[in-house]
Design a protein around this nucleic acid. Structure first.
Length: 156
DNA sequence: GCCAACGTTGGC
DNA sequence: GCCAACGTTGGC
């Protein structure tokens, strides 16, 4: 089982939106490295840190889990979608998405500054300057540490 | 709004 | 294949 960190701009889709919806299709990933993680490595039940980017403050907002493994991202077929990509077809899909289910919200967002300041989180990808990857793998130790700092028992 | 750190595109 | 130009992400 692998752990993940997935970024979303809360003005687009926040942890509160995920709580309301219960689960969501993680559409719109248009980066090959992030796609490959979703398509090749994510398994049902993998835990996810839901990360708010471009936020005030940016940081870890809660926890989700993978509810469905990768399948073609239908937004790439939709000409009216912001995520439309003519290179992707139903016969030969280029982009994929997974379903993410809600697990828990942190009482407060754990700011990126706090993640960077925590010595137990040394080396975490999201703290690296210029880290733009929207889907990142995360060690189990780092996952559990973020849960703890967020005030959640990761065993639940 | 600024800018660093990328990823992508396209000329050659 | 190289690399400059350009576009995007995302912190601050």
């Amino acid at each position: 089982m692998k752990c993940w960190l997935m970024k979303s701009e809360p003005s687009v889709y926040s942890i509160d939106d995920l709580k309301r919806d219960g689960k969501t299709a993680w559409e719109g990933v248009r980066n090959y490295q992030a796609r490959n993680f979703m398509r090749d490595e994510m398994k049902v039940g993998d835990p996810v840190i839901f990360y708010h980017s471009n936020a005030k403050p940016s940081g870890a907002a809660g926890v989700g889990k993978i509810a469905k493994e990768a399948y073609p991202d239908s937004s790439a077929f939709d000409k009216s979608s912001h995520y439309y990509d003519e290179r992707s077809t139903r016969e030969k899909p280029l982009w994929f998405m997974v379903d993410v289910a809600y697990v828990a919200s942190f009482a407060e967002v754990l700011p990126l500054a706090a993640i960077k300041a925590d010595t137990e989180l040394d080396g975490i990808m999201v703290a690296r300057t210029g880290s733009r990857l929207s889907v990142q793998p995360l060690s189990k130790a780092h996952f559990e540490r973020i849960c703890k700092l967020g005030g959640i028992d990761s065993k639940n």
